[in-house]
Each structure stands twice: as C-alpha cells, then as structure tokens.
C-alpha cells in the first residue's frame, strides 16, 4: 500500500482535519459518554483516601478534607491487627498471596480457555461434521440455566474427584471452554475470508496447520479482545473459588477482599478498606489492558499494510 493511502488513517488517530458541525456533535457525545463512564469511579478513589472515621460525615464532599493512605496500607496488610481493628477494620488479609493466586488462576484459565475455545470455534465456523449446529446450539443453551441450580452438582463432582481445596478444582470448570468464548470466536471466524484457507488446503496443509498458522494470526484482534474480557471475568470470579478453596493461602483476591464486605446480618461493610482494595485489585488488570491494547493497535497497523 502506498503512503498516500495510509496517511489519512494514521492522521485520523490524532488530528481532526475538518471541524464540521457533525464532528463537533460527535466529539461532544464521546466526551459526555466518557465523563459518565469515569465519574462514578471517583467514589472508589475518594472513599479509598478517606479516613474511616470521616467517611460518613463527609459523604457529600467531593474530596476528603484530610486525604490519607491509611486504607491502602490496611488493604495491603501493612498495619497491625490492633491498629486495623481500632479504626473499625476487619482482620488483616494477605494481599500479596491473594494477588499471586489470582494471577496464577487467571493466567491458567485465560490461556487454556482461549485456546480450546478457539479450536472449537474454528470447527463450528468452518469444518463440516454431522451434528455441528446442534452441538453449537447446545453450547449456547448451556448459558441459559441460572448458576444457582448448577453449582451444587458441579461442586459435588469436584469433591468426588478429590479436588476440593486444590488449584485444579478451582480452575476445572473454566479451563476447557466457556460458551461465551466459543460463540464469540465463531462469529469472528465466520467473517474471515475463505480464500486464504482454501489456498492453504490446496497446498496440502492440514486443518491444524491452517488453524494455527492462518486463522489464529489473522484473528489477533478478536483473540486479544476475548483474552482481555476473559481476564477481567476470571479476575472477578468470586463464588466458585470461594466455595472450593478452604485455606487462606489458596484464596484469590476476590475471596480475600470479601472480608471487607458485610460481615454481619445488619452490619455495614468496611467501606474505606473495600474501596482501597478494589482500587489496588484493578491496577494489574488495567496495566494488562493497556499493554494488550497496544498489541491490538500494532496488529491492526500490521494487517493494514498487507
């Protein structure tokens, strides 16, 4: 592609060439949507930097009168238990262990779930075999039964496998697939032009070769998008790891952070601790997001040159 044609696209990344009324409206709309997205998040930060004793009294202030890092230290387990309890906090948590467990848990699931789901999605989108559409619909239908009636059979299965309180028990329901991932990738593989594969098959390539060397590389954007979404969902997964893990050193972040939430039937959460911990917990995911996001952009520019 010659530079004359690539230029406008690159320019569009940064500069607006013409400020037509339509474009102004568009910019304003975008700004409004971003503001709506960001503003509620201020509650997280503001609560996190407020001293527990001032939270309620200063509820309507936009900024605490006396910002503090106390809650972050509490969330990281850097204060003594006595000091923590004295400000209405709960027992100390081991933030770093929980973080490590979460990373391991998420990484395992994202890599293997994305891979196996992609394989299945490719088969559903491209290969012909009897019962294909029925099985695909069954996969989809699996998401339609509320988890409330499914998790007990699942729990009993994992228990019978002897996997309670183990890592494999925690990841088991997620590593092989989720219907969401299969469905998502199938839709994208459907949109991939068939000519590329046909050429490869004519050259005598195996289906796995086509999948691995052609389909996966050109589907980088949807794959990375899916990986991001799976990362977020897995990172936020609470109930299953909670019910399967028993020991404190097995806890993932969501389970450990639950400490800050309502402890008694008529109690109140440890709001300041909860928000500080929430803030700390999303940092790794956010970083990953930006890093992977950059990947997507690069891959776009790369495929744009082809």
């Amino acid at each position: 592609m010659n530079p004359v044609e690539t230029n406008p696209i690159r320019v569009r990344n940064r500069v607006v060439y013409q400020l037509t009324p339509g474009r102004i409206v568009a910019w304003v709309l975008l700004a409004v949507l971003i503001f709506i997205t960001l503003f509620p998040l201020w509650i997280v930060i503001k609560t996190a930097i407020t001293h527990p004793k001032e939270l309620f009294e200063q509820a309507t202030l936009l900024f605490p009168s006396d910002p503090t890092l106390l809650n972050f230290r509490r969330a990281l387990g850097m204060v003594s238990l006595e000091e923590n309890l004295a400000v209405g906090g709960v027992a100390n948590i081991n933030f770093l262990t929980a973080m490590r467990n979460s990373v391991l848990f998420t990484l395992t699931i994202v890599v293997s779930q994305t891979f196996f789901s992609a394989m299945a999605a490719y088969a559903f989108a491209r290969l012909r075999f009897p019962g294909r559409d029925l099985i695909f619909f069954l996969f989809l239908a699996a998401t339609m039964i509320p988890g409330a009636v499914l998790f007990i059979p699942n729990f009993i299965l994992v228990k019978n496998l002897g996997w309670l309180n183990t890592f494999q028990g925690m990841v088991a329901p997620f590593v092989l697939m989720t219907p969401f991932a299969v469905f998502f990738l199938r839709q994208f593989f459907l949109a991939v032009p068939k000519e590329l594969e046909e050429a490869a098959y004519l050259d005598g390539a195996s289906p796995f070769y086509v999948f691995w060397r052609i389909i996966l590389p050109i589907s980088k954007t949807p794959l990375v998008t899916l990986a991001i979404l799976t990362t977020i969902n897995t990172w936020n997964e609470f109930f299953w790891p909670w019910i399967v893990s028993k020991d404190n050193n097995m806890q993932v972040l969501t389970v450990a952070l639950k400490m800050f939430q309502s402890q008694t039937p008529q109690g109140s959460p440890d709001w300041t601790g909860l928000m500080a911990a929430t803030f700390l917990a999303i940092i790794p995911v956010f970083i990953l997001l930006v890093v992977l996001g950059r990947q997507v952009v690069e891959s776009l520019q790369f495929s744009g040159l082809k």
């Binding site: 998790f151 007990i152 228990k159 019910i243 939430q261 402890q263 008694t264």
Partner: peptide
C-alpha cells in the same frame, strides 16, 4: 462473611 455464609453452609450439608 454473612452474605455467603448460609449458601456455603447449605452446600456443605449437601456435599458432606
């Protein structure tokens, strides 16, 4: 925590 205490307990009863 209270929110999940009883669900966890009931699951425990069912699964031993």
């Amino acid at each position: 925590g209270w929110d999940d205490y009883w669900t966890g307990l009931t699951t425990g009863f069912v699964s031993g």
